[in-house]
Measured scan of single mutants.
Amino acid sequence: KKTCTFCKKEIWNTKDSVVAQTGSGGSFHEFCTSVCLSLYEAQQQ
């Protein structure tokens, strides 16, 4: 099972999830929504 990098909820429907390359290492992270992605990126600043 996949979990959201930001909120840690399980991702049930992968077509609704967002995968983004974030951080200095350029690793890929999966998020349940684009909202979680935005919040995660804001936290990394």
Rank of each mutant, 00 (worst) to 15 (best):
K9E: 07
F28M: 12
F31W: 03
S38C: 06
Q44M: 09
S27D: 10
C7G: 01
V18R: 11
C32E: 01
C4A: 00
T22G: 11
C4I: 00
S24F: 03
E30C: 09
S34A: 13
K9N: 04
D16Q: 05
S24P: 14
S24E: 11
T3L: 06
I11A: 06
V19A: 12
Q45R: 13
K1D: 15
G26Y: 03
K8Y: 05
K8H: 15
T5P: 03
E10T: 07
K8V: 04
Y40C: 07
Q21L: 06
V35C: 05
Q43K: 15
K2A: 09
S24I: 07
C7K: 00
I11E: 03
K9G: 09
S38L: 02
G26H: 03
Q44W: 06
S27R: 11
Q44L: 08
T14G: 10
T3V: 05
L39W: 04
N13V: 10
S27T: 14
S17I: 06
I11T: 01
G23D: 07
V18I: 05
F31D: 02
L37H: 13
S34I: 02
C7M: 00
L37F: 07
F28G: 15
G25P: 11
E10N: 06
S24Y: 03
F31G: 03
E30L: 05
H29G: 12
D16F: 08
A42F: 02
V35N: 12
S24T: 11
F6E: 13
V18N: 08
V18G: 11
Q45C: 10
C36H: 03
T33N: 07
L37N: 04
C36G: 02
Q21I: 04
T22W: 02
K9T: 04
G23M: 08
C32Q: 01
V18P: 13
C32S: 01
S17G: 13
E10W: 07
S34K: 12
K2I: 12
T5C: 10
E41T: 06
W12K: 05
E10P: 09
H29Y: 05
F6T: 13
F28Y: 06
S27M: 09
G23Y: 01
C36I: 00
L37G: 12
A42H: 06
K1V: 06
T5R: 06
Q43N: 07
V35H: 07
F31T: 03
F6R: 11
V18H: 07
H29R: 11
F6Q: 15
C36A: 01
G23Q: 11
I11V: 09
N13G: 14
C36F: 00
V19D: 12
D16H: 09
E41N: 10
Y40L: 06
D16G: 05
E30F: 03
G23I: 03
C4D: 01
T5H: 05
T22R: 10
K9D: 05
G26P: 13
A20Q: 15
Q44C: 08
W12Q: 15
E41D: 09
Y40H: 11
F31M: 04
S34G: 11
A20K: 13
C7E: 01
S38E: 13
F28N: 15
T5F: 05
T5V: 05
S38H: 12
V19R: 13
A20R: 14
Q43I: 02
T5L: 08
L37W: 06
K2G: 05
A20M: 04
S34H: 08
C32G: 01
S27Q: 10
W12V: 07
Q45N: 05
S34N: 15
S34M: 03
E10Y: 03
T3N: 12
K15G: 11
L37C: 10
Q45A: 14
K2M: 09
T14F: 11
I11C: 13
K8D: 10
S24V: 10
L39P: 04
D16L: 04
I11D: 15
H29I: 08
C36D: 02
A20Y: 09
S27K: 11
C32V: 00
T33L: 00
D16E: 15
H29T: 12
A42V: 06
C4W: 00
K2D: 10
C36T: 01
K2R: 05
K1R: 03
L37A: 12
S34C: 02
Q43P: 14
G25C: 02
G26A: 12
C32F: 00
H29C: 05
L39D: 13
S27G: 12
V35L: 13
T3W: 02
E30R: 08
T22P: 14
T33R: 07
K9Y: 01
T22Y: 04
G25S: 09
A20C: 02
Q44T: 08
I11K: 05
K8I: 03
G23N: 04
E41K: 13
K2Q: 12
T33Y: 00
K1A: 01
C4P: 00
C32T: 01
S24G: 14
K9Q: 04
F31N: 02
T33K: 08
D16M: 04
S38W: 02
T33Q: 14
Y40I: 03
V18C: 02
K9A: 08
F31Q: 03
S34Q: 13
K1I: 13
H29N: 15
F28P: 15
V19I: 03
T5N: 14
N13S: 13
K8E: 07
C32W: 00
T33G: 14
Y40V: 04
T22K: 06
S27L: 11
N13C: 02
G26I: 07
G26W: 04
Q21M: 06
T3A: 04
N13R: 08
K8M: 06
Q21F: 04
T33F: 00
I11L: 09
Q21S: 07
V19E: 14
F31V: 02
G23A: 09
K1E: 08
C36V: 00
S34T: 09
S27V: 13
E30A: 11
E30Q: 07
K2W: 01
S34L: 02
C4V: 00
S27W: 05
T22C: 10
G25D: 10
C4K: 00
K9W: 01
S27E: 14
V18A: 13
